[in-house]
């Protein structure tokens, strides 16, 4: 595949709009494409692509391909693979980027193996090696305790990008780009796993991903009540959201969807208040991009104090009420 050229972003549509992660991948892709002096394209797959195609142009794509089919309503790898494989072969890009999302973490490896290459997952940084034009992918390893930079000679190079790790371009509605249909006849007979039902478990209130302030509790909260009382009260005053480390989710104190970390949500709020969680590297992978991390923990040796900007050592049961009271006074 010596003639592979350009960068292809396999995009996602969320609630009818271009997903933020796709704008981020396009932002990263634009920088790489400019450096390579090659084209940046984007493929959008779904039952209806709609205005997301225009948004992808505004976010940096030179070309947007759209594949629409009722069979592509929900993500399922056998169906989406038919599109991704055809795009990889017909468009022959040098680099394929996806988001590290429910779809990307499932589709990228399968596509890579089908094409006889290996993907690099969950990248924090992407760069081009000037001499070889190879993509250099830097990603966390050992649960975030180290980072590694990977490269490969085989083309296409496939990578997924971590949410909120790359900056999107400011959307420019005046940007010129082509939008073209990329029709694929989906062979339903090849779809071996069928989606029977999609269940949403959204929590009420401010969305964790969008919140400017997040109050997160860990195993040391001791049970479900403090999440709906003390932590929720503080989050409400800060107009933010409640999050959790993994043990409260595993223990069913809180819904799985509010887990923050390597295998949960990746967030980067202005303010992150970590209560009774130790700050494991896997947890910090999901919140280390926060502008200000505050730690409340009874163990002065807890790793969270290596990550936080400011904190208090002690029992949250004593600290939190007084802290919340003072925050209330200050913000009213």
């Amino acid at each position: 595949m010596a003639d592979n050229k350009g960068i292809l972003v396999v995009g996602e549509i969320a609630e009818g709009k271009l997903a933020p992660i796709t704008a981020e991948a396009l932002g990263a892709g634009r920088r790489l494409a400019d450096e390579l002096k090659e084209e940046l394209s984007c493929i959008l797959i779904g039952d209806k692509v709609g205005d997301a195609a225009k948004a992808a142009v505004a976010a940096g794509a030179d070309k947007v391909y759209t594949t629409e089919d009722a069979a592509l309503k929900d993500y399922e790898n056998d169906a989406y693979m038919q599109v991704a494989e055809k795009a990889a072969k017909d468009l022959a890009p040098r680099i394929i980027l996806l988001g590290q999302t429910s779809m990307g973490r499932d589709l990228a490896p399968r596509l890579a193996f089908r094409l006889g290459v290996s993907a690099v997952m969950d990248c924090l940084e992407l760069a081009i090696d000037g001499a070889t034009k190879q993509l250099l992918c830097t990603r966390p390893v050992y649960g975030g305790n180290a980072k590694a930079t990977f490269s490969s000679e085989a083309l296409p190079q496939i990578a997924t990008v971590r949410q909120k790790a790359m900056s999107p371009l400011a959307p420019d509605a005046g940007r010129q780009g082509q939008i073209a249909a990329f029709p694929v006849a989906i062979d339903a007979g090849k779809v071996r796993a069928k989606v029977l039902e999609t269940v949403k478990e959204e929590v009420a209130g401010v969305k964790l991903e969008d919140a400017g302030a997040v109050v997160a509790g860990g195993r040391g909260m001791g049970g479900p009540e403090p999440f709906t009382k003390e932590l929720a009260e503080l989050a409400k005053i800060l107009k933010g959201a409640v999050g959790a480390s993994r043990p409260p989710c595993d223990n069913k104190w809180v819904p799985d969807t509010i887990q923050i970390g390597l295998t949960g949500k990746i967030i980067a709020p202005e303010l992150y208040i970590a209560v009774a969680l130790s700050g494991s590297s896997q947890h910090m992978s999901g919140c280390s991009g926060s502008k200000c991390i505050v730690a409340i923990n009874k163990d002065p040796e807890a790793n969270i104090f290596k990550e936080a900007r400011v904190g208090v050592v002690g029992d949250w049961k004593v600290i939190l009420p007084a802290f919340t009271q003072r925050i209330k006074e200050l913000t009213q």
Partner: peptide, 18 residues
Amino acid sequence: LKVAAGKLADKLREYKVI
């Protein structure tokens, strides 16, 4: 500890994050 908790809140105001 309660006083420390209050001071922590003041610190966040100083940092302009609340």
